[in-house]
Structures are given as C-alpha cells and as structure tokens.
Amino acid sequence: EVDTLELTRQVKEKLAKNGICQRIFGEKVLGLSQGSVSDMLSRPKPWSKLTQKGREPFIRMQLWLSDQL
C-alpha cells in the first residue's frame, strides 16, 4: 500500500528543488497532461480507492523518486 499523500508531497518537493515544471514531469515521466498531473498532485486519491490503471502514475512517481526511472 502506497501513502499517496506523502508520495505526492515528496514529488512536489523534488520538482521544486530541481526546477522541474509539472508539464515536463507529466509528459516525460508519467505520460500525462499537465492538468492531470496538477490534479493528481494536489488531490491524490487514497491507494485503496485507485484502480490498477489509477495506481500506475503513483508507481512511476515512486520509481522516479528512487532514481530508477
């Protein structure tokens, strides 16, 4: 189980620290539009309420944070 709230907090922190905009992060890392990324980072759904497809971007965020992506 992933703590989506904590994960998105860490992602936002790393984006800010490295000067990466959400649009680029969305396109290059998540394969999503800036609007989708913005929504996901500001209002993450609980892991238990996400479908497999809904969980994929959060898994990619985890990999990106651990420099595996």
Rank of each mutant, 00 (worst) to 15 (best):
G26R: 04
V29Q: 02
I59P: 00
R55E: 00
F58H: 03
L63K: 15
S33Y: 09
E1N: 11
S66I: 12
L65F: 06
R23D: 12
L30G: 02
E13N: 09
Q10N: 08
R9Q: 08
C21R: 10
K49P: 01
E13S: 08
G35S: 14
P46M: 06
T4P: 07
E27Q: 13
D67E: 13
L63D: 15
W47P: 00
L32I: 11
L32T: 06
S48G: 13
L15D: 06
K17I: 04
Q68K: 15
V37L: 14
S66Y: 13
G26Y: 07
W47M: 01
Q52R: 14
L50F: 03
P46C: 03
L41Y: 02
D67K: 12
D3C: 04
M40Y: 05
L15I: 10
R55P: 00
L5A: 14
S36E: 15
L63V: 09
I24T: 14
G54L: 13
L69V: 11
F25S: 01
T8F: 08
L50C: 02
I20P: 05
S36W: 11
F25A: 00
L69W: 08
R23K: 14
G54M: 13
M40D: 11
T8Y: 03
E27S: 13
F58M: 02
V37D: 02
K45Y: 04
T8S: 09
T51H: 05
Q22F: 07
T4A: 03
G35N: 14
K49L: 13
K49I: 09
R23Q: 10
K45T: 08
K12P: 05
M61T: 02
W64Y: 03
G54S: 10
P57L: 15
E56P: 01
P57Y: 14
V11E: 06
G31M: 03
V11K: 10
S33P: 14
L30C: 05
D67G: 13
V11Q: 05
Q34T: 14
P44K: 08
L5R: 12
G19K: 13
E6N: 11
L63F: 04
F25H: 00
R55F: 01
S38F: 05
S36Q: 15
L32Q: 04
I59Q: 14
S33K: 14
L41P: 05
L65T: 00
G31N: 09
Q52W: 06
G54E: 15
R9M: 13
K49R: 04
R9N: 11
R43K: 12
S48K: 10
V2E: 12
Q34V: 15
T51E: 02
Q52V: 12
I20K: 03
G19T: 03
I24C: 05
L65C: 02
S38Q: 14
K12F: 01
P57I: 14
L30K: 07
G19Q: 05
M40I: 13
W64F: 05
Q34C: 04
R23I: 06
Q10I: 06
L32D: 03
M61P: 01
Q22K: 10
L63W: 04
L30S: 02
N18I: 09
G19I: 02
M61K: 00
T51Y: 13
D3L: 02
V37M: 05
V37K: 05
T4K: 08
V2L: 14
D67A: 06
Q52S: 11
V29G: 07
F25T: 02
S42R: 11
Q34H: 14
G35Q: 15
L30E: 02
L41W: 05
E56G: 05
Q62T: 03
K53E: 13
L50Y: 06
I20S: 03
K28V: 07
E13W: 03
E6W: 07
G31S: 08
T4Q: 05
P57M: 15
V2I: 15
K12D: 12
L63T: 13
S48V: 04
L63Y: 09
P44S: 07
S66L: 09
E1C: 14
Q34L: 13
L5P: 10
D3K: 06
G26L: 07
A16C: 09
Q22N: 02
L41T: 02
F58P: 00
Q34I: 13
Q34F: 13
S36Y: 11
L41K: 06
A16H: 03
V29T: 04
K14T: 15
V2K: 14
K12A: 03
T4F: 13
G26D: 03
L63M: 14
L69G: 11
D39Q: 13
K53C: 02
G54C: 13
E56K: 07
W47F: 03
V29K: 08
L69A: 07
G19R: 14
I20H: 02
K17H: 02
G35C: 06
R43D: 14
G35L: 12
K53I: 12
L15A: 14
E6V: 06
M61N: 00
L69Y: 10
E1H: 08
R23L: 06
K14F: 15
D67C: 01
E6Y: 07
L65S: 00
C21E: 12
C21K: 12
Q10R: 12
G31I: 01
G35T: 14
S66Q: 13
M61I: 03
S66G: 14
L65K: 01
E6H: 08
V37S: 05
I20E: 01
L5H: 12
I20F: 11
K28F: 03
G26P: 05
I20R: 02
K17C: 06
S36C: 11
G26I: 04
E56A: 10
G26C: 12
S33M: 15
I24M: 12
R55V: 02
R60H: 02
Q62F: 01
M61S: 01
L15R: 11
Q22G: 03
N18G: 09
R55Q: 04
E56L: 06
A16P: 07
T8C: 12
P46Y: 10
Q68F: 09
G19V: 02
Q68H: 08
W47V: 00
L15K: 14
F58S: 00
K17V: 07
P57K: 11
D39M: 07
R43H: 13
F25W: 11
V2D: 04
L69F: 10
E27I: 08
K28R: 09
M61G: 01
K53H: 06
K28Y: 04
K28H: 08
T4E: 06
E6I: 06
V11M: 07
V37N: 02
G31V: 01
I59C: 04
D3R: 03
G54A: 15
R9H: 03
L69K: 12
P46A: 05
L7I: 11
K12R: 06
I24K: 10
W64Q: 00
N18C: 03
W64P: 00
R43T: 07
T51W: 12
R60K: 15
R23F: 13
D39V: 02
G31R: 09
R23Y: 09
L41M: 06
V2Y: 08
S33F: 13
E27L: 09
S48T: 10
M40V: 12
E13G: 06
Q34E: 05
P44C: 08
G31C: 04
D3F: 08
G19W: 03
M40P: 05
R23M: 06
M61Y: 00
G19N: 13
D67I: 01
S66A: 12
S33R: 13
C21N: 14
Q68V: 11
I59T: 11
K28A: 06
N18V: 10
P57W: 09
